[in-house]
């Protein structure tokens, strides 16, 4: 494992008087899976927005593979190989599902596909959709994104990130809104991506699934990191219990 694949150093961000993220640091080694958990409003998405360039931090640094990427515009960070999904799905609604993948497939990053010659982008897009569970021989990949059910849109977001051939993939509550069977089908996809060498960050409320696949978990509460460690350690942490369940039940 490559150490310090992604380093977040003393990052803070306030909105008005509210400290959304307060002095958060962590590092992530290559080809690992980091889970970020915490109650609603803990600052998880803000942290992701800072890493992916959608929000500039007030202080602190984000270092990706040794390069300081703090405050770079979002599209440049995407070009460097950090792809993300959005908590609330943001498909290109008026494009067919597979055409949603064409835009990342045109990126400067994507020169060849899985080592082979590129060939036809539409075919590559359909291949990727099949990987995330779109039935290949059905009409589903060709339907307009606006007509797809939520679970498909979630996986469409995942496939669209994969089309960018990222080195770091950030999934913001990928499982939320998916059915049990969709989650069960998606977990092996994520494990396979990691086995292929991808580094992942997952924000997740489905702790059972997350703890099974995460190498490390950090816990945020009111913008501060209150715990960090292996899933089995974090689950026993008193502060985490308080944050999640309230003081009395701790």
């Amino acid at each position: 494992m490559r150490e310090n694949f992604l380093v977040v150093e003393n990052v803070s961000k306030s909105f008005g008087g509210v400290k959304a993220i307060s002095n958060v640091s962590f590092s992530l080694s290559g080809n690992s899976l980091l889970g970020i958990i915490g109650p609603n409003g803990a600052g998880k998405t803000t942290l992701i927005n800072i890493i992916t360039g959608f929000i500039k931090p007030d202080s602190g640094r984000v270092i990706f593979k040794g390069d300081d990427i703090t405050g770079l515009p979002g599209y440049k960070i995407a070009e460097k190989g950090i792809a993300r999904t959005f908590q609330i799905v943001r498909p290109f609604l008026h494009l067919p599902a597979y055409k949603n993948l064409i835009i990342p497939l045109y990126s400067k990053r994507v020169k060849s596909f899985r080592g082979g010659r590129f060939g036809d982008r539409d075919t590559v897009a359909i291949d990727l959709l099949e990987e995330v569970g779109f039935e290949r021989d059905s009409s589903v990949p060709y339907k307009s994104a606006s007509s797809l059910p939520h679970g498909y849109l979630k996986r469409l977001e995942l496939a669209r990130c994969l089309a960018l051939q990222p080195e770091l993939l950030i999934l913001d509550e990928l499982f939320s809104g998916m059915s049990m069977s969709e989650v069960a089908a998606t977990v092996p996809i994520i494990e396979k991506l990691k086995a292929e060498g991808l580094t992942l960050i997952m924000i997740e409320h489905r702790l059972r699934e997350l703890f099974r696949i995460a190498d490390k978990v950090i816990v945020l509460n009111f913008g501060e990191k209150i715990a960090e460690g292996k899933p089995s350690e974090v689950i026993e942490n008193e502060l985490v219990k308080v944050a999640y369940l309230g003081a009395e039940s701790a």
Binding site: Y75, R84, P91, H94, Y106
Partner: peptide, 24 residues
């Protein structure tokens, strides 16, 4: 065309387009 598709991507969802490497 790539630029034309970028146009449509931005028109339909600017933030997603940025996350996919398009300079809005």
């Amino acid at each position: 065309t790539k630029l034309g598709l970028s146009f449509r991507a931005i028109a339909q969802n600017e933030r997603t387009a940025i996350a996919l490497g398009i300079d809005a």
